[in-house]
Design a protein around this nucleic acid. Structure first.
Lengths: 232, 232
DNA sequence: CTTATTAGATACAGTCACGTATCCTAAGGA
DNA sequence: TCCTTAGGATACGTGACTGTATCTAATAAG
């Protein structure tokens, strides 16, 4: 089995010299030809970093092997060797960057809530949420949804941030110890997420404060819920 | 300046006979060659219908001139003559199908709210919301957001559905006449939309009832909101 | 130093969509 | 009826991306 594809040694030599300007980050990329060559986990990290950047900048639609390879300063075959499917690359990227949001413990229900929402809105966490919107095409293809993706990436069974915040407030005696629906408890994050979806931009502090002060806190201290009527 | 592209009459004739199986809807598409040919507004309607179908089925990513033309049983040039840009075609499609959601008037605050949410969840309205999620790529490209699109398509200045519902409840004496923030008043639709986003599926009745009974109604009758603290 | 890996650079064939140009002819008004 | 308009079919060149198959040379292990 000798070379099925014909190409003269001249071509090879000619080509080998050109096209050596890439690798925005670590690589030396000298002209002569002796660029540093990454391997193993180090290379893998660099690729996933690049993949994340591409995903954030161009969305799922622009999340191609071509773009990621170029961004990482490597070539497509290197990616295919590790992640044969686009999903694999995507999942690997998400799991690397999807980190839980810090839950503050200030001793005040309101400050905990606002602090958490600000954490959720800022930094990478907000970007995750914004970017997850870019994945609709992925959800289409796989028949899944954002909710399912979240359940996949977050460890199940663990109490949510607001469940913890409310529990602590109850312990302190700041809130009465009555049963509360999951919807009510987690309302602030849902509203923040909704705002992110609608505006595709970070949510201003005023909106966060409004969610907590005008919606959540009054609701937590509101009188008992009346029973639901039967459906028509 | 005569025919720059060379093709013999034989080719033409040979080609003309084949490829005559399309137009799922109205067209006769006889074999001999005398298919009915639509024109003007009639054709335009058919195209936009097809465009809508394509958008719903394949999302913005699959919303190509190619796909729409095939679906409408016509050819790409016909589309390009009317809508030179992809956005034009998209906007035309959306404006045709983006219709306001019916607001029931039952004489009961709760029934109005639940009825409206069910209307919003059902039929085309729900599809619009679901489908609008498909447009993230469009929002990327244009730098806009879902909120802006909604503001573009909905007539501005008009009171929202829930503003009307609340106003009527106040008139009936079912609610006290106190100032309420826009966020509180429109909360149910935001929560419904959030559920649609997260699950990509119609929202079950139980969720709608929960939004109204466990969140909105208690909130509307909750004690006065405390003033917001200054931002840190 | 020697040797097995494997990153990195091509090449290639195939697909899909784009945007435009061209021609044929059905539809509909004069 | 004739004639203008425009729908419809098709071709063409281009560009992006896909998977895969090579070959080279850098790297690490021995």
């Amino acid at each position: 089995m000798d070379r099925k594809q014909d190409q003269t040694a001249d071509e090879r030599g000619a080509i080998g010299t050109q096209a050596t300007e890439r690798r925005p980050d670590g690589g030396a990329t000298r002209d002569g030809g002796g660029a540093t060559r990454r391997r193993g986990p180090k290379l893998e990290d660099a690729i996933l970093d690049a993949a994340w950047d591409v995903l954030v900048e161009h969305g799922y639609h622009g999340f191609t092997y071509e773009a990621v390879a170029a961004r990482a300063g490597t070539s497509r075959p290197v990616l295919y060797r590790r992640w044969p499917q686009r999903d694999d690359l995507l999942l690997a990227t998400l799991t690397k960057f999807w980190q839980p949001i810090a839950v503050p413990d200030t001793g005040s229900l309101r400050d905990d809530a606002i602090g958490f929402l600000r954490n959720a809105d800022a930094d990478r966490a907000g970007m995750i949420t914004l970017m997850s919107v870019q994945l609709v095409d992925y959800f289409r293809d796989t028949g899944t949804s954002l909710g399912e993706l979240r359940d996949t990436l977050l460890p199940p069974g663990r109490p949510t941030a607001f469940e913890m915040i409310v529990a602590r407030a109850v312990e302190r005696g700041e809130l009465p110890d009555v049963p509360r629906s999951s919807r009510v408890v987690n309302l602030p994050l849902d509203l923040l997420r909704h705002d992110l979806f609608m505006t595709m931009r970070p949510v201003p502090y005023e909106s966060i404060a409004e969610i907590v002060d005008a919606v959540w806190l009054p609701l937590l201290t509101a009188p008992e819920t009346r029973p639901a009527y039967p459906p028509p």
